[in-house]
């Protein structure tokens, strides 16, 4: 075990020994050429690398849930085979449009969002991770989680050295990329049954900045990146996109299956249909989770509230 890893464990390994101020990459991982690969398995390193740069206005929006699960459930991040399509055969001029005034929402299944995100990062960008779900863990039985977690974690681990290297040349004002799992609402999966661990979730306004914050952060354009150009953003993102559009922020689309859009994003000429605000539109389903639109009372009525008191 390397001395650096030992020092790292001493600092972050177990329990709260010495709460540290916000850390930069050099403090966390050192500056030398040799880095123990085990460092990239640590939840706090991954949380750091897949989050905004220190001093960035987007720091408050990084979601820690999946990173906390690595620590609390003793998950070992592993390396995984990546999808070659996201890393090769890019058209000339692809992703040149990425600039500090652009927020990108990469909304793809499983680890694909991370892989595409790293491709974009090479053009100068920082991440905001939104993986707000918890893996199933039990010492006595197995259950099928609706949203798989291991692939996200392994993809982050696999690309961590590359992300670490890329971050060395970035400043806190580079474009933010919101990394989202397009399966979060569970729409393309069978309905959970009582033997299923329901870990669906939606992206709420604690993970998305308001219009004023976007504008204050210099954002003039939002690019929504999903699988196909014909697909609308998922319903939990719609109110955010409509609100930004109303405030004069340009909304554009990129589809991972349409390489022309990699070069030139398409304007979102028609805003997606807003059914309801997510906070009202997504109530707990009969499985105790989210993901199903159900009729709810209007905002002002005396319907049920949410969560604990």
């Amino acid at each position: 075990m390397s001395q650096r890893w030992l020092k790292f464990l001493e600092k972050f390994g177990s329990g709260v020994k010495s709460p540290d101020p916000p850390i930069d990459d050099a403090t966390l991982l050192g500056t030398g050429p040799e880095i123990d690969p085990k460092m990239y398995e640590h939840y706090e390193v991954l949380f750091h690398l897949y989050g905004p740069l220190t001093g960035s206005p987007w720091v408050p929006y990084q979601c820690p849930t999946i990173f906390a699960s690595i620590d609390k459930l003793n998950i070992t991040p592993d390396t995984v085979e990546l999808s070659p399509g996201y890393h090769e055969e890019h058209p000339p001029q692809a992703w040149q449009w990425l600039s500090p005034d652009t927020m990108v929402i990469v909304d793809l299944p499983d680890g694909a969002a991370i892989e595409v995100g790293v491709t974009l990062m090479k053009k100068g960008a920082q991440f905001v991770s939104t993986f707000d779900h918890w893996p199933f863990s039990s010492t006595v039985r197995t259950a099928t989680p609706v949203i798989k977690t291991q692939n996200h974690i392994d993809t982050m681990r696999t690309l961590a050295p590359e992300v670490h290297a890329l971050r060395q040349n970035l400043t806190p004002d580079v474009a933010p990329i919101w990394l989202c799992d397009s399966r979060r609402l569970g729409d393309d999966m069978p309905d959970p049954t009582p033997g299923t661990f329901d870990n669906r979730y939606y992206i709420d306004d604690s993970i998305l900045p308001g219009v004023n914050t976007l504008q204050k952060g210099g954002i003039r354009r939002i690019v929504h990146l999903n699988e196909q150009l014909k697909d609308d953003p998922l319903p939990d993102l719609v109110p955010f996109i409509i609100e930004a559009n109303k405030a004069g922020i340009a909304i554009e689309k990129v589809a991972i299956k349409d390489k022309n859009t990699w070069v030139q994003p398409q304007p979102m000429t028609e805003m997606p249909f807003k059914t309801r605000l997510p906070i009202r539109g997504f109530r707990r389903t009969d499985m105790g989770g989210f993901g199903k639109m159900v009729p709810v009372p209007s905002e002002g009525s005396y319907g049920s509230g949410g969560g604990g008191g």
């Binding site: 849930t65 918890w134 661990f197 669906r200 939606y202 997504f282 707990r284 105790g288 989210f290 993901g291």
Partner: peptide, 13 residues
């Protein structure tokens, strides 16, 4: 807990 809410999950966890 209501599994769709990580703020509820953090509480029971």
């Amino acid at each position: 807990h209501a599994t769709g809410h990580s703020e509820d999950l953090q509480h029971v966890a």
